Simulated scan of single mutants.
Amino acid sequence: MTDWALPRAGGCRCGQVRIEVNAPPLITMACHCAGCQRMSASAFSLSAAIPAKGFHIIRGEAVIGGLHGATRHFFCPRCMTWMFTRPEGMDWFVNLRPTMLDDPTGFAPFIESWTSEKLAFAETGAVHSYDAFPPLEAYDGLMRDFAVWTGT
């Protein structure tokens, strides 16, 4: 992932909710947890942690779906596409599903989490793997390594 041209536009499957990204990701991830498998109807979910100031809904309004807890998962109210997540207590970034971008070219997961729940066939090519989430104290170093990896 060496060319994260900005700004990048995107939207849900039906186009009712449109977004714009004006900042490069802090880190990119694949999550293999059973919850993400169910919400994405796939072997894992992909996300790019975008600084909150660089993420904007430019048309429509996303609604909370999935689990209705403190961590908020946002969906298009019409087509129900899972678009992004705002993790509890971490308002400084938005976990964008990078496949919502009109052009997801250049995206690759840098870390993968919850490999303890990974389906046997699922491979992501991530540089770092964790049985659960990385320890909180590891993120500063991972984000620095990601910046070197991407050349940002």
Score class of each variant (00 low, 15 high):
Met1Phe: 13
Met1Pro: 13
Thr2His: 14
Asp3Glu: 15
Ala5Ser: 15
Ala5Trp: 13
Arg13Pro: 06
Gly15His: 01
Gln16His: 00
Val17Glu: 06
Val17Tyr: 03
Arg18Ser: 03
Arg18Ala: 02
Ile19Tyr: 06
Asn22Ser: 12
Asn22Asp: 10
Pro25Leu: 09
Leu26Thr: 04
Thr28Ser: 07
Thr28Glu: 07
Met29Trp: 09
Met29Gln: 13
Met29Gly: 14
Cys31Gly: 00
His32Ile: 03
His32Pro: 05
His32Gly: 05
Ala34Pro: 00
Gly35Phe: 02
Cys36Trp: 04
Arg38Asn: 00
Met39Cys: 07
Ser47Glu: 11
Ser47His: 12
Ser47Trp: 12
Ala48His: 14
Ala49Asp: 09
Ile50Trp: 02
Ile50Gly: 06
Gly54Ala: 09
Phe55Trp: 09
Ile58Val: 10
Ile58Trp: 01
Arg59Cys: 04
Arg59Leu: 02
Arg59Met: 03
Arg59Asp: 04
Gly60Glu: 08
Ile64Phe: 03
Ile64His: 00
Gly66Leu: 04
Leu67Thr: 05
Leu67Gln: 00
His68Asn: 01
Gly69Thr: 06
Ala70Gln: 07
Phe75Lys: 11
Phe75Leu: 07
Arg78Cys: 00
Cys79Ile: 05
Thr81Trp: 00
Met83Glu: 00
Thr85Asn: 08
Thr85Cys: 11
Arg86Glu: 06
Pro87Glu: 10
Glu88Arg: 06
Glu88Gln: 09
Met90Phe: 13
Asp91Gly: 14
Leu96Cys: 09
Pro98Phe: 11
Met100Pro: 08
Leu101Thr: 10
Asp103Ser: 07
Thr105Ser: 15
Phe107Leu: 04
Ile111Phe: 08
Trp114Thr: 05
Thr115Asn: 11
Thr115Val: 10
Glu117Ile: 04
Lys118Cys: 09
Lys118Asn: 09
Ala120Asn: 05
Thr124Ala: 07
Gly125Val: 08
Ala126Lys: 07
Val127Asn: 13
His128Phe: 15
Ser129Pro: 11
Tyr130Arg: 12
Tyr130Phe: 15
Ala132Trp: 03
Phe133His: 10
Pro134Cys: 07
Leu136Trp: 08
Glu137Ile: 08
Glu137Arg: 02
Ala138Gln: 07
Gly141Gln: 13
Gly141Asn: 12
Leu142Glu: 14
Arg144Val: 15
Arg144Leu: 15
Asp145Lys: 14
Ala147Ile: 13
Val148Gln: 01
Gly151Arg: 00
Gly151Cys: 00
Thr152Tyr: 02
